[in-house]
Design a protein around this nucleic acid. Structure first.
Length: 550
RNA sequence: GCGCCAGUAGCUCAAUAGGAUAGAGCGUUGGCCUCCGGAGCCAAAGGUUGUGGGUUCGAUUCCCGCCUGGCGCACCA
């Protein structure tokens, strides 16, 4: 058993003995004190309980400490400090054994089961197939993927989904825009329609189509030609998106097409359900949904006076479809320009009879691109966008994923292209990967020197501070994973891995692993193997490579 | 005008669920390779956490006001 789990279990028992039901997770929170000299784990329950129990926190702490009845194998020293902290010092015996526990658990170290197999879905990127994926999508892709991986790690059953907006007005515009490019290739001048797409990628596509189909499409009637070109553009764009994401090491479980919803009239079904609940009314020729009944600031149109379903209606149908597929929680990752959309969507979800908190939207803030110290204004109209493919090519998948996950979602991200391009050692991802490669190299060296790194060892020879620090750091990993998933704060993971690499590099600098002392060498080989395992498990969650050498 | 997000060291960010003396990287200054990878390690300097109140044993964190910046407030998607 790992020490955190041991202490938590003891704490639960102690609280019950005090007549307190330890339901509130805050009572069970075990913090690692920020400051040195306050032990390895701090219990804050006494202070949390002080008001309810109407007793001084230090007095409660004393009682708790007695009831904890901690085993010396795990806790070498426990003391009450400050206003009522109980500071615990981990015993070397349990830390030494933890090395073996980590090695036994291998890839599964850091896993948990509190997700209890609940099915959750993450829908992210879902960019309109009217242009190449840009740098904002790259951020969403990295974050969505790692959030999904984190949830899998803590016991949820997870699906990653990409919603394809392949119907509606924008597809018509895409076809019309491509039509202009296509005819331009044939020598007929035309103007990109209002709201159409100006990007250069459509010129390339027009050339490719000309090559494949020649001028045959030009003979079709206008409407038919545009539809045909719209389809071709869509297919080409989707293939491009898939290729980009594939390069990014991101695999979706499902690509869900909007056309499917329309073909099966699922939006009409939604209308009927809402109608039956009396949540629909007609006004000025349009059909409205009483979203204000569920906290939205105003009612919303579902069918326009022209008889067209709005995007909102289709989107409601889409979310209903997700629920019907059995997901208990829907995680949607949206851009900041959609935050005004959350209330109405949640209103619809409640109207359909699903719990408001089963629908979780995570807003990913924008990416500001810097080049030469200047903000690059991105404009689709001017065709100035940085494509995801360019980014991957320039900085590599590892660095890109790291940078995007390294900040909390609510924080706008400044991405300095020049710096990222440098591909220099300033890049923290190299620091972490270097630790992994360094360990691998030491293990190779040890084998050459006749040591067998798979051999058992007496770990009680691991006693110095650097060794203990390293083990403690490794043991933090499961909690980092849990909290990153629980609070949707994936940036905790790269931050932690950086710290772990730092502790390892310090250990390495001061302690020779392969030495004349055979017993100590064997023990340290296991220690660095365990460290490497943790680094690898962390990098794997982010789909960043863990190189054996660099 | 209303709403959402943000404001922490020169710059980019942390601060683990309200905890103890607010920490890292980059940059600046100065040290460390006879040795398993120097893509590394150590140290110094750098802060009124935008601002004014409140809640409490304790606030960067929670509440209210104000300031600054970004975004949103369609019968568009």
């Amino acid at each position: 058993m790992k020490p955190q789990i041991y202490v938590r279990t003891r704490l639960e028992n102690a609280l019950r003995a005090l007549g307190i039901d330890p339901i509130d997770p805050i009572l069970l929170n075990l913090d690692k004190p920020k400051q040195d000299g306050f032990g390895d784990l701090a219990i804050t329950s006494a202070m949390s309980l002080a008001r309810d129990l109407r007793q001084p926190p230090r007095k409660i702490a004393e009682k708790l400490l007695q009831l904890l009845d901690l085993d010396q194998f795990y806790i070498e020293k426990a003391e009450i400090a400050g206003p009522g902290f109980i500071n615990l010092y981990l015993a070397k015996s349990c830390l030494q054994r933890a090395v073996l526990e980590i090695l036994d658990e291998r890839d599964t170290f850091g896993s948990d089961d509190w997700g209890k197999g609940i099915r959750v879905q993450f829908e992210f990127v879902s960019a309109n197939p009217t242009g190449p994926l840009n740098i904002v999508s790259a951020r969403a892709a990295a974050i969505g993927d790692v959030l999904a991986a984190l949830h899998e790690k803590v016991g949820f059953v997870v699906e990653r989904e990409y919603y394809v907006n392949d119907a509606g007005r924008q597809v018509n515009l895409l076809g019309a825009s491509l039509d202009v490019r296509y005819r331009a290739e044939l020598g007929t001048a035309g103007e990109i329609p209002e709201g159409g797409y100006h990007g250069a990628y459509l010129i390339d596509l027009a050339k490719a189509i000309l090559e494949e189909y020649g001028s045959s499409l030009a003979e079709l009637p206008d409407q038919e030609r545009r539809e045909r070109l719209g389809r071709l553009a869509l297919d080409a764009m989707l293939a491009k998106h898939r290729a980009s994401l594939d390069k990014y090491r991101l695999n979706y479980d499902r690509w869900f097409h909007e056309t499917r919803l329309r073909q099966q009239s699922e939006h009409l079904n939604v209308l009927k359900v809402l109608q039956d609940k009396g949540l629909i009314y007609e006004d000025e020729g349009a059909t409205w949904f009483r979203s204000t009944q569920f906290g939205d600031e105003k009612d919303r149109v579902l069918v326009t006076s022209e008889g067209e379903p709005t995007y909102f209606l289709i989107d409601i149908a889409y979310h209903q479809n997700k629920y019907q597929r059995g997901f208990a929680v829907l995680h949607d990752l949206w851009g900041p320009d959609h935050h005004g959309y959350i209330d109405r969507m949640r209103a619809a979800i409640q109207a359909l009879g699903y719990a408001a908190d089963s629908f979780r939207v995570h807003i990913i803030q924008q990416v500001n691109l810097f080049r030469g110290g200047q903000v690059v204004k991105m404009s689709k109209r001017a065709g100035e966008i940085i494509e995801m493919d360019e980014l991957i090519e320039e900085v590599g998948v590892d660095a890109a994923r790291y940078f995007f996950v390294d900040r909390r979602l609510s924080q706008p991200l400044d991405f300095d292209i020049d710096l990222a391009k440098k591909k220099s050692d300033e890049n923290p991802v190299y620091y972490i990967q270097y630790a992994h490669a360094r360990i691998s190299n030491v293990l190779r060296y040890a084998e050459e020197q006749g040591f067998n790194s798979a051999m058992a060892a007496d770990l009680s020879v691991l006693t110095n501070d650097a060794e203990m620090e390293l083990i403690k750091k490794c043991l933090e990993f499961p909690q980092v994973v849990s909290k990153a998933a629980q609070f949707i704060e994936p940036h905790r993971l790269p931050n932690y891995l950086y710290e772990l690499a730092n502790v390892f590099h310090r250990f390495y600098h001061d302690n020779r692993v392969v030495s004349d002392d055979g017993a100590l060498t064997q023990a340290r080989l296991l220690l660095i193997q365990a460290t490497r395992q943790v680094i690898k498990n962390g990098l794997t969650l982010m789909q960043i490579t863990a190189p054996e050498n660099m």
